[in-house]
Structure formats: structure tokens, C-alpha cells
């Protein structure tokens, strides 16, 4: 926790905006990854004759699979790539 607070305090305004821009680019890349996954999981698997719980594989991968992948992406973004910064509000000491 101390490390996070130190990180928060060390950044200048320019560094914060640069970091936020980088995080926005990560988010854009994540979106591109999700679109590719969505295409492969749904249309890409639509000719595969495999069923799971009475559902064709594409229907499972294209719905629950995409959902789980989106959660995974959000996890990577929010817990690994995004950094905590001081926004200057009351919640940031």
C-alpha cells in the first residue's frame, strides 16, 4: 500500500496525462483483442460439429466464452496494466 501511495505522489501532471494516454491505448488494444476473439469464437467455430450442454460450440464460446474473455481483459487492464494515481480529490491523500 505504501508503494502505491508513493507512486501516486511522485507523478507530475504531465506524467499523469501521459500514463492515462498509455492506459487508453491499452484499452483500445484490448478492444481489438476482444473483437478478434469474438470473431473466432463465434463465426470461426460455427462449422465445428461439437456440442456442449446441447449447445453448439460456437454458441457457448461466442457468448459465455466472450464474456469470460472480457472479464479476463478487464482484470489484466485494471489489476496489471493500470496504475493508481492521485486525482487530486478528497479520496486521494
Amino acid at each position: 500500500m505504501t508503494k502505491i501511495l508513493d507512486f501516486k505522489q511522485d507523478l507530475t501532471a504531465a506524467e499523469k496525462f501521459s500514463l492515462v494516454k498509455r492506459e487508453a491505448i491499452y484499452t483500445g488494444i484490448a478492444l481489438a483483442g476482444l473483437i478478434i476473439f469474438w470473431l473466432i469464437a463465434g463465426f470461426g467455430l460455427s462449422n465445428v460439429d461439437v456440442k456442449i450442454f446441447h449447445l453448439p460450440l460456437w454458441a457457448v464460446a461466442g457468448s459465455i466464452g466472450v464474456w469470460f474473455f472480457a472479464i479476463f481483459i478487464s482484470f489484466i487492464l485494471s489489476r496489471k496494466l493500470f496504475k493508481n494515481i492521485n486525482l487530486g480529490g478528497e479520496g486521494d491523500e
Binding site: F17, A24, G28, A30, L34, G42, W67, A70, I73, L87
Partner: peptide, 23 residues
């Protein structure tokens, strides 16, 4: 399959605009 694209809605808006708008 079409409706599930909405899973992007939250992480996109908060990831792209969340911090910049807050700052």
C-alpha cells in the same frame, strides 16, 4: 452472440475516458 458485444461497454468507457475526465 450479437448482444454479448455489450460486455465492452463498461471497461471501454472507464478505461479510455475514466481517468482523463476525472483529472
Amino acid at each position: 452472440y450479437m448482444a454479448v458485444v455489450q460486455v465492452t461497454a463498461i471497461f471501454l468507457v472507464l478505461g479510455i475516458f475514466g481517468k482523463r475526465v476525472a483529472l
